[in-house]
Every structure is written in C-alpha cells, then in structure tokens.
Nucleic acid binder design. Sequence first.
DNA 1: ACCTGAACACCGTTCAAGT
DNA 2: ACCTGAACACCGTTCAAGT
Lengths: 224, 224
Amino acid sequence: MATRERRPERRQEPLSRERIVGAAVELLDTAGERGLTFRALAERLATGPGAIYWHVTGKAELLAAATDAVIAPAVAPADAEATPEQAIRTLALGIFDALDTHPWVGPQLTLTERHSPLLRVFEGIGRQVQALGVPESARFTAASALMSYILGVAGQNAAGSRSVPPGTDRAAHLGAVADSWAELDPGHYPFTREVAGQLRVHDDEAEFLAGVDLILGGIAAGLR
Amino acid sequence: MATRERRPERRQEPLSRERIVGAAVELLDTAGERGLTFRALAERLATGPGAIYWHVTGKAELLAAATDAVIAPAVAPADAEATPEQAIRTLALGIFDALDTHPWVGPQLTLTERHSPLLRVFEGIGRQVQALGVPESARFTAASALMSYILGVAGQNAAGSRSVPPGTDRAAHLGAVADSWAELDPGHYPFTREVAGQLRVHDDEAEFLAGVDLILGGIAAGLR
DNA sequence: ACCTGAACACCGTTCAAGT
DNA sequence: ACCTGAACACCGTTCAAGT
C-alpha cells in the first residue's frame, strides 16, 4: 500500500553549475552565510557533497559565483533618456537593493578582484561621471568616491541585518537601536543622542539617495 | 646535562582577557582571519583551548573585543585648534589607517551594533558636521554619508589586501590589477580602461581624502 | 577561582569506487 | 563523463576532572 509512494516528487534534473549556484543563493538567502554548507547543499540537490566538486572548485568559487549571479542583473544598462545624475541614482539603487535582499554579498565584493562583478558598476558610474562633464583627471576620484559610498552603505545595511535573527522586523530593530542611542550618556554622546529620533524614522532608501546627491553636489561644485 | 633547559623562557603571566585579546589581534594580523583558531591561540598562550572560554564567551565576542582594541585608539579627541574640515579629515584618516594595518576589522564593523566602536567615530563626525553649520535636519544625513564613505573605502582596501597573500607588495598588486584593467575590452569597458593608469599610480591616502573633500564640498554647497 | 585536555558535533575537501 | 559517500584533517565548544 505504501509501495508507490517512493516515486520521486519531480524528475531529477542533472547536476549543473547553474543549479548548484542557484541552490547556493537560496541557501544563503534563507539560512545566512553559515547555512551554506556542502552537506546542506548536497542534500538540497539530492546528491553527495563530493558531486558538487565536479562542477565547482571549492567554496570560494561557489561564493564568487553566487555573488555574481546576484549582482549582474542589478546592473541594467542606462536609460538613454535619463540625465547622468538620474542614471547614477538608478545604478546605485540597483546595488543597494541587491545587497539589501542578499545581505551576504557585501563582504564578497572587491573592486580590485580581477573579475569583480563591480567592474560593470564602476564602468557604468564612470561613464555618467564623464557625461557630467568632469575633467579626465578628476573622473577616477569621482567614480571611486561614489562606488565607495555605495558599498559602505550597503555593507552597513547588510551587517546590520546579519547581526539580527533572519526575518526580524527591520523597523523594530531600528527602533531598538534608536532607543539605545537615546539612552547614551549626554556628556559623551550629545550628537548621537540628538539624532536618535532621525534614525528611528528614517527611510533607508531616501537616506541612501540623499548621500548620493551629497557627493553629486560636491562633484558639481568642483566643476564651477 | 639537559636537565636545566626545561626552565620556561619567560615567566608565565596569568591568563587574562587582555592578554587573550592581544594575542588574538597578533594572530589576526599575522595569519589573517582564518589564522585565528582557539587551538592556535591556546598554543600561543601556552594553555589549552578550554581555558580561553573562562575569560571570553566565544569566538564572536573575541572578534568584537579585538575589533574594539584596534579601533578605539584610532579615535583621538579632536584638536581644539583644528577647523571642522580638518578634524573630519583627521578622524577619517585614523580609521583608514587602522583598517589598513588590520584588514580583518572591516567586516566586523556595524554602526547599528549596540556597542559598536563606530559610535565614537559617528559622534566625532557628527560634532564637526554641526560645527560646520549644517542645520539640524541635515546633520544625520551628512554624518551618515561621511561614515558610509569611510567604511566603504576601508572595506574595499581591506578586501583587496585580504585577497592577496599577506606580505605581498601593494604596489605590485595594484599594478597587476591596473594591467588587467588596461586589457579590458574597449567596447564594454572604455571608462575603466581609460583610468587604469590612474589606478596604477594613485596614492591610497590622497585618493581617500579627495573623496572626503568631495562630500565636504557637497555639504558646503548645501549650505549656500 | 581558574586551568586542563579529551570528547562531541560539526566543517571543507579528497578520493577510491561505482555507473 | 559524472556521481557516490566514506574518510581525513580540521574547526568551535563543552565539560568532567584537576589545582
């Protein structure tokens, strides 16, 4: 009577690099960085841990591939209609969102890595910096500053959500931090106390874009 | 004849949280993040791994303590003579240097951690932002942007030097990356190719400060 | 109160053996 | 060519036992 239940739920596709990376991203998203295990991955793919090594050299490459899979779609080509400023905001927001949904990516990103997925981002920002009319000698600095800022925010956001049990309410967490800021010693932390309220109500994305605009303002000021 | 050689080289100080954290920092600096092991640490301290747990709850706290030990001295109180801009540059440079000598700190830093060593940095920046004459409603944004930028650069630098065998010549590594940039497909990466030369010769610290000045310029522009 | 070090429950990675 | 899964050399952490 239970004999027929053994049939697999769905036909087993062959193992492939693509499936492995996809499963790795899922695992990282749901279980966090510590959740990505060759054993857990193997179980999800209904195979043994050794099989994965046929398609991927090791954990480092797996993480790099997962990072790439998540960043690449975030970098859409610029809308031809957009102003350089708008194009930069769109690009920045793309990475911001990607790192927001996948908090584990942040630490993986390095621009100096030889085939970094950030190269596309840097290129995109650089072109718009050029379109803004920044002279050649100042372009590298301007593009780097924008990149660094974006990665800094994303990294902080990611670190913040990593330090919290996955699925915790973001607003609640922010509120708790704001509370602790409001309770700081006024003698040592007058400024931080003062802005605790702004931390509590602030909109991550709007705050992020305000920072981008601050840098764009500095770039524009340099052109005058 | 060999009997007397067994005397310990130096008198063994008692184990303490301070000694443990100090040894952890040394281990992290010399052997990298993967080098920090309870066994390696125990060996350095001439004890068993279990002994460490009497003074420290676990690896997470150990890393946090090591991070704090490295960041705290980098945040000196502002020179009373300095302009707000200068004070911000000094502060920024302090963290930059700390993260540069200790590349493993970057990923540990989160502002939203309840007792983050970054709180002091944020407070310091915030005060100077206030001194610049930024209106209250814009201070949080300005201070956050500066913080994020600083952490972004530091994180990138750290990630860069982490991806390289410890002790490798920095200039050589930068040169190699610049070479690979210069060889990029001109159709897809015209901007990055163009600035490859600037990456090769650029001065990390000067570039970093130029970015700080860009944000300060944006803040100043907002005041006009 | 503080330290010891064996033991437990994990890891990433390898590899002989299978198909 | 691709997969299996036991085995190896590690981890962080615990804990009975010592001083």
